[in-house]
Design a protein around this nucleic acid. Structure first.
Lengths: 189, 189
DNA sequence: CGCCCATCTTGTCAGCGACAAGTTATGCTG
DNA sequence: CAGCATAACTTGTCGCTGACAAGATGGGCG
């Protein structure tokens, strides 16, 4: 995956970094390959060599996001083993890596079938679900699934609403704001 | 708000309808004013007269969405008075009016300060929160707020994940699929 | 040393959003 | 019912964008 240095140094990386910057400022709709090229001081067609097309760049960004999320979830589970903490980490990830997160769940923007992306998404999903099955009081497999989906939905919804600015003022610390909300879930209690 | 018929009949309405069609098919990113004009069989600049710019059209769409949501929530509350049912209706709205919903929570796409939009969003918010305060077992004002935010987050997250195709196969009926998930919330139990 | 190929450039095209200026038709006023 | 103000639309144009094609460059390896 990681390419070696070449003319520019690492143009692929530079373009992804610039893309994150732009998306954090103005959202994915404002993204332009030519603008990224300008920021990296290369010609307007350079980005297409690395990503094929605009959707290709966003595919790479989404895959990177899922990979990062999978790692953070796995780390948390190893450290605390807490289901609630998994939700907190999900929210933190969404806000800390806002640009990645905003692209990850917008499959109309990227090549949803890309193998790297599919694999990364699967890793993230596994990391998420492996936390559920460890819950003490969930009996049947169906209960596990419903608890997992509810936890995911709750964390995802809170993060999404926070990012869109729809939530009332809850301070500046999303993790602390999320905790009491997440605790409203039965399996967390 | 509602314009009278003129040359085209009701171009403003026709453009909004066409926009919903396009967004449902290909997402908001694929929307083009010139394409809408073609579909309505008018010149490429006609849409700008009615909406000013692209963001203006999306502002109108978002406002229409919040208005519709407010109505549906109010109707449900009048009919059942159930907090859980409010969540179900939220999910149903998001999927039945997918195009509206996808724009409503993407403020980078429209003029977030538009008075009509702000008013409509407020109506929807009020309809949502007025259901929470009627819960039997929530004590303090803080509890009410947390329960409300959790319910909103849960329904919103489930709807968003469903629309993005991230959820595993849960059948074709989102309302029935949502019910057991929503029930995982404490205040619903 | 010389070749190969990944990397990047230059040039071009159609489609887009926005703006400006002109045209048409509707409905109101006197 | 005549005239006109104006809302509704058209035509023309600009700069920007994504995509494609074809050429230039330069690093690494035989």
């Amino acid at each position: 995956m990681a390419k070696r240095a070449y003319h520019h140094g690492d143009l692929r990386r530079a373009l992804l970094v610039a893309a994150v910057e732009v998306i954090e400022e103005s959202g994915p709709a404002a993204l332009s390959l030519r603008d990224l090229a300008r920021r990296a001081d290369v010609s307007h067609a350079a980005p297409q060599h690395h990503f094929g097309d605009k959707a290709g760049l966003l595919t790479a960004l989404a895959a990177e996001g899922f990979d990062l999320l999978a790692r953070e979830l796995a780390d948390t589970r190893a450290a605390t083993g807490s289901f609630l903490e998994l939700g907190v980490v999900y929210v933190r990830f969404a806000i800390a890596h806002r640009a990645h997160f905003e692209v990850m769940f917008r499959p109309d923007l990227y090549h949803a079938g890309d193998p790297d992306l599919v694999a990364a998404r699967r890793r993230a999903g596994d990391a998420l679900y492996s936390g559920v099955s460890e819950l003490p009081d969930v009996g049947t497999r169906r209960d596990v699934r419903e608890a997992g989906l509810a936890g995911w939905s709750l964390a995802h919804g809170f993060a999404t609403l926070w990012l869109s600015g729809a939530l009332p003022d809850l301070g500046t610390n999303p993790e602390e704001a999320a905790r009491p909300i997440l605790r409203q879930l039965n399996p967390y209690a």
